[in-house]
Design a protein around this nucleic acid. Structure first.
Length: 272
DNA sequence: CTTATTCCCTGATTGC
DNA sequence: TGCAATCAGGGAATAA
């Protein structure tokens, strides 16, 4: 499940490896008919070659590959997507959904078991990422902004953290970790989170993301970085997938419940 | 505007 | 042991 720390790790990996390269060929598997958005895959494969990769940025969980001519190649990995760069052509893989060759013989391989991943080739990225909430690691994410968000909503606070239009880039792992950091019960109504707890949540979100980023992301299942290596943060999570294990802070067994349709892990003692 | 539910997809897990 | 039903999850679409 690539979330902000995982996508940012991939971005940094790819940035050092493919900026300046020109795309020489593109292929999309016929068994991935939903991968390319807004245009037929054949059109996408025809347009991409010839463009030089100028930069790579990230917005929430979206990767934006800036191409020559002002075009953007946007990639979302969803649940099981992998976006890998290698020095030779993409190897045989039953889940290889798209492959791209670069002008130095290296390649980008898009591997995605569940086929939820999507990509766009588009002039105006705001059509794809324009409605996302603030970047939680930027100055746009403030305690006051978070407070405004929470007071208007009666949904569980975890549902708000997962809402990409509220804050961009948080998924199931870091929503649970952030709420633990802040000592907030995930089921608590957003508009009942106190002011001090809102401050704690703001800090808790940032800490969860920064901790994961420094570990190059969490590899619970499919996630690997831009070179195909696993992250390490799955070994350090405080609550996510630690059901029935003791809380590191108080020893109470971590509980698992369903909130906002997602598995949710928390310490019933530390998160009241 | 909000919140809840369904859908996409397939390997892993659970239940009988 | 075997096979079917359920689960996992990001986010768009749909319903209410």
């Amino acid at each position: 499940m690539p979330e902000l720390p995982e996508v940012e790790t991939i971005r940094r990996d790819l940035l050092s490896r493919i900026v300046g390269r020109t795309i020489t060929s593109a292929f999309v598997s016929s068994n991935a008919p939903r991968l390319v958005q807004l245009m037929p895959p054949a059109e996408f494969c025809k347009q991409l070659p010839g463009h030089r990769i100028e930069d790579i940025s990230r917005r929430g969980k979206y990767l934006l590959v800036h191409l020559s001519g002002g075009l953007y190649w946007i990639v979302h990995l969803r649940m099981t997507g992998r976006f890998l760069h290698r020095e030779d052509p993409c190897p045989e893989d039953p889940y290889l959904r798209a492959g791209f060759t670069l002008d130095n013989g290296s390649s980008l391989c898009f591997v995605d078991l569940r086929k939820f991943g999507t990509m766009w080739l588009i002039d105006d990225p705001s059509l794809v990422v324009g409605k996302l909430g603030p970047e939680p690691l930027s100055d746009d994410f403030t305690v006051a902004g978070l407070r405004d968000l929470l007071v208007r909503r009666s949904a569980p606070v975890k549902a708000v953290l997962l809402d990409q239009h509220a804050i961009a880039g948080i998924g199931n792992i870091y929503a649970d970790e952030a709420l633990f950091n802040a000592g907030i019960n995930p089921r608590r109504a957003a508009n009942k989170v106190s002011k001090p707890k809102t401050e704690a949540l703001h800090a808790g979100v940032r800490q969860a993301l920064l901790d994961a980023l420094s570990d190059r992301g969490s590899s619970f299942s499919d996630y690997v970085d831009g070179s195909g290596r696993s992250g390490r943060h799955q070994l350090k999570v405080k609550v996510f997938r630690r059901t029935d294990q003791p809380c590191y802070s108080c020893g109470t067994q971590i509980r698992r419940v369903k909130v906002a349709g997602r598995s949710t892990h928390f310490c019933p003692n530390c998160q009241r």
